[in-house]
Amino acid sequence: MKDNLIVSGSPHIHKKGSISNIMWAVVISVIPAGIAGVIIFGLDALWVTIAAVIAAVLTELVLEAWAGKKITVFDGSAVITGILLAFNLPPNVPLWLPVIGAVFSIAIGKQVFGGIGQNIFNPALVGRVFLMASWPKYMTIFVKPFDALTGATPLAALKEGKILEHISYLDLFLGKRGGCIGEVCILALLIGAAFLLIRGHLSWHIPASYIFTTAVFTYIFGAAQLFHGDWLFHILSGGLILGALFMATDYVATPLTAKGQLIFGVGCGLLTAVIRIWGGYPEGVSYAILMMNGATPFIDRYTRIRIYGTK
C-alpha cells in the first residue's frame, strides 16, 4: 500500500511507451511491405535490405562509440532508417550502393546533427537523395516484376509520354509493376500502417492530407485538359503511399501539432504533384518530404498551441 502512495509532480498518468518501443513497432509494420517486395522482385530485394540495415547499425555504433556518446543502436531507429532507405532503392542495385547510402544516412543525415531526435531531415531520404544525385544510372533502372527484364516505372513511362501498357489499378494496388523495393505493394503498406494506427503510433493527419492534396492537384492539372487527371493512378504509382505513411510521418522532422501536420501534409502533396506534373523528375515524393522537413521549424513556430488561460 505504501508503495502506491507516491507524491510527485504531474503528469500522474503514464503510458508505457518509449523510443525503442515505437521504433520496433515501426520495424514490424514495414515487414509486410518487405515480404511483398521479396515476393515480387526475388531475393535481390532481401540482400539489398539486409545490407542497408547492417551498414546503418554499424555506422551508428562506430560513430557513437567514437564520439563517446550513449550507444543507441538497440532502440531500432538505425534499423528502421536502413529498412526505409532500402525500400526506396531499386531491387537490382549493386550491394555497395545501399551500404554507402546507409552510411551517409546515419553519418550525415543523423549523427552530424547529434543523433536521434536531433536530425532536421528524414535520414533515410537524405541517403536516397544522395544516391540519386551521385549514381543516377543505378537509381533509375528498374526491373519488371517476376522477370529479370528492366523497364520504366509507370510514372517514368507517363513522363515520357508513352501509353501505359495494360497496367490496371489492381496491379498497381498489389504491386505488379516496376519500382523501388518497398513502394510497389500498396496493400502491404496499408496493412503495416493499420497496425501502427491501431497501436496509436501514427496519426492520420499527415498521410491523409498528403494523399488527398496530391489526388486533388493531379486530378486538376494531371492531364492536358483541366479536371481530367488520373488521380487514382498518381496515388497508386510511385512512392507516394510509402512516403506518406512511413517517411513523412517521421517523428523528429515533422510538426508537432495537428494543425501543423495538416499544413505539412498539404505542402508535401502540393510539391509532389508539382514535381510529377511539371518537374524534371518522374517522381517527387522524396524531394517534397525533404523540402517540407526544412520548413518544419517555421510551421511549428506559427502553429504553436495557445496555453490555456492566455490570449
Partner: peptide
Amino acid sequence: FEPVFVFGMPSGALLVIGLLLG
C-alpha cells in the same frame, strides 16, 4: 572507381566544407 557525382555539384562543395570545418 565509380565517381560520386554529387561532389562535383555545389551541394558536394557545401558537404565537403562542412565536414572539414567540423
